[in-house]
Design a binder for these strands. Structure first.
Lengths: 185, 185
DNA sequence: ACCTGAACACCGTTCAAGT
DNA sequence: ACCTGAACACCGTTCAAGT
């Protein structure tokens, strides 16, 4: 007599994502996820090999969300303005979903091709804009300069690293403008 | 009959730091620390309120180590060269002690003044060099631009985020030089 | 005055037994 | 075919009892 499924992969991932968004990565226990979908913890192992595997699926969805946000910046905008917009969308995403953003960069040790492409695809809108700005030859290091700044800035901001006063919004705008100005010339 | 102390604050912190350096933050259990200093886990609570408190002490030592490395860059060097050296020392530290570096930024939720000043003091050598380069008015946002880039770059590098090929050393030098060039003009 | 065994509430995970 | 209680090895932490 087959037992009917009480939940689904999608419901489990959605519950896990909600837990991470609301209470952070440390709140993501198999017990909490099981409670949210009304099964007992061992049932989750029918669908996900372990907690890391479930977390990786949440990370993949989060990177997809971020990529979709970035892709809504019109590709027709002139590259400098497009990069400003991309940088703003990126920071807004991180601030709006700060716990999820932090969890996206928790290293599960996964080095499978899918994981690599998932993360690489998120960078594509920015790389296209940088390529349009500086040309294909300089595109890779220039993209790394911009992504390192943007990721570093929001990471530090979210961990309250900017404690010397001053306006953080202005510092971000200053950084983005200075970088775009340096790349354009 | 007083029982003689079997260990010390210093020995416990040293053991904890060694564990983090060698096996990462997730290996830092009270059991592992207790084993290393040859006591039972409950004894550690005589000296540290909890695991987070011990971790914060390890973080403070790590920030001190980083600051001492940065302070060995001669203050007499011209600001652009000084900043290049500071950026290189910073990246070397993160690469040489990658697990410790990652643990330095684990957020324990501590917002006490000591914690704030500890982190702020690490930024001082860079802020001084940036001030010498761009003047006091622009020093704060310019320092944030540089630290965000440097921290973002090494964090991404250590989590294997640069997977599109190209020379990562060159990308770092390109980033640092581009930033210094943009600030100097 | 410091150390420790025992205990508690929690983890992630496995597996045999249920339907 | 999926679900679950029971169990295992681990956590962090507390505390009464030892010397």
């Amino acid at each position: 007599v087959p037992a009917p499924a009480k939940t689904s992969d999608e419901a489990i991932v959605a519950a896990a994502k909600r837990i991470v968004e609301q209470d952070g990565l440390e709140a993501l226990s198999m017990q909490a996820v099981a409670d949210a979908v009304d099964v007992r913890p061992p049932s989750l192992y029918k669908r996900f090999a372990d907690r890391d595997s479930l977390l990786r699926t949440v990370q993949a969805e989060a990177f997809d969300d971020l990529r979709h946000s970035l892709e809504r910046v019109p590709a027709a905008l002139p590259p400098p303005e497009r990069l400003r917009r991309i940088a703003d969308v990126y920071r807004s995403f991180a601030r709006r979903r700060r716990r999820l953003y932090a969890a996206m960069f928790y290293d599960t040790g996964d080095r499978r091709p899918e994981d690599v492409t998932m993360r690489a695809r998120t960078a594509e809108p920015l790389i296209r804009a940088v390529t349009d700005l500086v040309g294909a030859e300089r595109a890779l290091p220039a993209s790394r300069l911009l992504t390192a700044f943007v990721h570093g800035f929001v990471t530090m901001e979210l961990s309250s690293a900017f404690r010397l006063g001053g306006n953080v919004d202005d510092a971000y705008a200053y950084g983005v403008d200075t970088l775009i100005g340096a790349l354009v010339k």
